[in-house]
């Protein structure tokens, strides 16, 4: 206190003055943190405003037709988003069909079956791999997976399903290597560590007492998982899957390399296709003309709307689980 008094011309601060000063600096700090927190909201609002204003030209020109048309012609400046939306939804859906059961399987393996000594290393490895950038999956898909898939798997798929009704259309045509199915497989590998990590965390919140009681009355491991753990952890598992779906929908680099960037809808999953993010990534920096740029931004707006809904549902599901397990954050 002596120093302070000296610096303020030997006016000895009274208790009230000191409290007042503290109060002011307190208020300033509070405002500072509040301001920083509002920056987050401002960024979010800025994204929405910039997407809407940027896509206004395209949306007002094409109207609802933008969503339903699959014409994408930069030369005549006619644009429709349907092929890209279709590709985004189908590739992500396929990826989830593959990755969710596998991810849950891995989580079950980690929580119930894995020898104790392996549990931590495998768990840590999965968490680390969830952080590997998507471009790594993309370059692997392009150089290693797609060529292998083209030579060894796709001809087989075409042959096996060639005479099966309905399925023959899904696996038809020449084996390109790149295409919808390849993109979906790469996506599923990419979100797999993510799903397993979240699911495992959720499984760990299931009270041991419940599981032990079930084992005690003679349930098998399968019955404990299916009747006790999964129902208890349901909202968390769904939330984790939705979170992964949000990632898959917006994933850019892993998909752009292997989907083929073809703006048409093909029944065959082996044919090249495109997604919203792949279209933007491939075309944006070379897009000429206001209408072209605006149409690409409009694609971004659609993607943002879709992922917002998916991620919001994921938040709600995960929050409800968190509340039930006593506010334990994952």
């Amino acid at each position: 206190m002596v120093d302070l008094a000296l610096s303020e011309n030997l006016v000895i601060p009274t208790r009230a003055a000191a409290l007042k000063r503290f109060g002011r600096s307190d208020a300033r700090f509070r405002l500072l943190t509040l301001g920083a927190a509002l920056v987050v909201v401002a960024i979010f609002a800025g994204i929405m405003v910039s997407l809407v204003s940027g896509s206004w030209l395209a949306l007002s020109t094409f109207g609802w037709g933008f969503l339903t048309s699959s014409v994408w012609n930069p030369v005549t400046e006619k644009f429709g988003a349907f092929a890209a939306i279709y590709g985004t939804l189908i590739s992500s859906a396929l990826a989830m069909i593959i990755a969710v059961p596998l991810g849950i399987g891995i989580a079950i393996f980690l929580t119930e079956l894995c020898p104790r000594a392996l549990k931590r290393p495998i768990g840590v490895a999965i968490e680390l791999l969830a952080g590997v950038p998507s471009i790594i999956y993309g370059i692997w898909g392009l150089f290693v997976f797609a060529p292998y898939f083209q030579v060894h798997v796709e001809p087989w798929l075409i042959e096996v399903f060639g005479n099966v009704p309905y399925m023959q259309d899904l696996f038809a045509g020449p084996p390109y290597g790149i295409g919808m199915f390849t993109a979906a497989l790469i996506l599923s590998i990419m979100v797999l560590p993510f799903i397993s990590a979240v699911t495992r965390d959720v499984f760990e919140t299931v009270p041991h007492l419940l599981k032990e009681a079930a084992y005690g009355v003679g349930c098998t491991t399968w019955e404990v998982m299916w009747r006790i753990v999964l129902p208890f952890a349901r909202s968390g598992v769904v939330g984790g899957a939705m979170l992964a779906l949000g990632r898959a929908l917006g994933e850019t680099m892993a998909v752009t390399f292997v989907i083929g960037n073809a703006h048409h809808i093909n029944e065959s999953l082996l044919a090249p296709a495109t997604t919203i993010s792949a279209t933007i990534a491939n075309e944006f920096s070379e897009a000429l003309g206001d209408m072209y740029v605006s149409s690409l931004v409009a694609l971004g707006l659609i993607l943002f709307a879709i992922t917002f809904i998916v991620l919001a549902v994921a938040q709600i599901m995960l929050k409800s689980l968190e509340r039930r397990s006593g506010g334990k954050s994952s």
Binding site: S50, L51, E251, S277
Partner: peptide, 26 residues
């Protein structure tokens, strides 16, 4: 705080290409 938390969690998993579009326009 509830709103900020919600928005922040959305931004955390939002497609990063959207961020690129935003900064491009900005």
């Amino acid at each position: 705080a509830f709103v900020i938390r919600f928005v922040n969690d959305i931004l955390l998993s939002a497609p990063s290409i959207i961020i690129g579009l935003f900064i491009y326009q900005l």
